[in-house]
Write a protein that binds this DNA or RNA. Sequence first.
RNA 1: GUGAGUGUAGCUCAGCGGUAGAGCGCCGGACUGUGGCUCCGGAUGUCGGGGGUUCGAAUCCCCUCACUCACCCCA
Length: 421
Amino acid sequence: MIPAVRGTRDVVPGEVERWQHLEQVAHDVCRRYGYREVRTPVIEREELFAKGTGESTDIVQKEMYAFTDKGGERVTLRPEATPSVVRAFVQHALEQALTEAKLYAIGPMFRYERPQKGRYRQFHQLDVEAFGVEAPALDAEVIEMAAHLVAELGIADAELVINTVGCPECRPAFSRALLDALGDRVAELCGDCRRRARTNPLRIFDCKQPADQPVIDGLPHTVDYLCPPCSEHFAAVREALEAFGVEYRVSHRLVRGLDYYRRTTFEILGRALGAQDALLGGGRYDGLVRQLGGPDRAGIGFAAGLERLVLAMPPDAAVAAPPDAYVVAIGEEARQPAQVLARDLRHAGLCTLVDYDARSPRSQMKRAGKAQAGQVLILGADELAGGRVSLKDMNTGEQEAVPRGDVVDRLRRMQKDCVAS
RNA sequence: GUGAGUGUAGCUCAGCGGUAGAGCGCCGGACUGUGGCUCCGGAUGUCGGGGGUUCGAAUCCCCUCACUCACCCCA
């Protein structure tokens, strides 16, 4: 047996229904909020992520499936969707074509990491991006939409956390304040934190080492170092969220790892997930479109991890629908007519199973019962002689002979009643 | 890249030096044209892989691979 590649997985019947439900809800929520779908390639030029995601991020430094193709081009499997969506937005001048530049994408992403609960090398994201609006009203709408998506999926144990990371105007001052406050105590922190202090001081807030917490708790907060525009923006976002009645917690420790974030950042955490508990995360990235060669447009969005959402969805969120009908053929002369009957039912829209192997009637009934078929249609010598089909309701056990010509309509009506009720 | 744990039937697991097992599931029969309950029967394993110790290894030792969880980082 040749197993699936490490960190990749099959979604098999039984679980795939949950994915189908999730995708249907995702498409529907996006549509209602005015987003249009865009499908971008899973393979891109490596430089797109070097410039977009950021050279300093772990994603770019060590997690990309990058290689040189046969034409000598440096390409990579996409590790995230935002730069791709921005590229498509710029490349096709979509702001000209759309009244609102709101785009979403669903698909696989690839990062070379050690797999663990809620994290895979091939994973899937719903990526939602809106361009060209600087107003805090959009920040709040995007966050509210994310919360609504989670709620719509029936995920109750979720917590919305928001923060602001300032902008290129005010962030350097905050980083300095952070390092000043830390002073010599940097040496007391764990190795990761000492490294962060040099590369990206804000990320010290991500530390999970219990021993480091007392020091980190004493550090200054971004909100106290924002420039006036950033400060006003954050206040307006919070005000709008409150008007929506969205519950949230402000955490000055929510920093997020991607280089392009400005101002608003947010995450929704799932409580039943394990260590990788972010169901979705995002924020504002006002400089990114321009940095990738487009016009100077603001941007904001989020990425939701589909594996994590599936994990967090209630156990009974979606199950496969049982077949409408099972056609039982008794005797050799009934086999072909049974296939034709099954064909007719299928053409009429009914999910129909039929036996191929001349099993005993008992065996066929057992299979119909196991498949939870609603109706069993029995075709044997008696029925063929009378031009009828025996129709057995598997829930009540009642059985009656129905003229062959009426069977399809009869079942179709029963199915409609079933859907209606 | 680092650390810990686990690999035995399709699934959940027992067996821990002496002939590979149970429950569930699957297939068939009792009921030769009628499911669910019951009973009876059946199939299925390179005991993750390789090497070593031993008269003898699923069991002990070494290596390796995979999975799981956690770190890093992130969805």
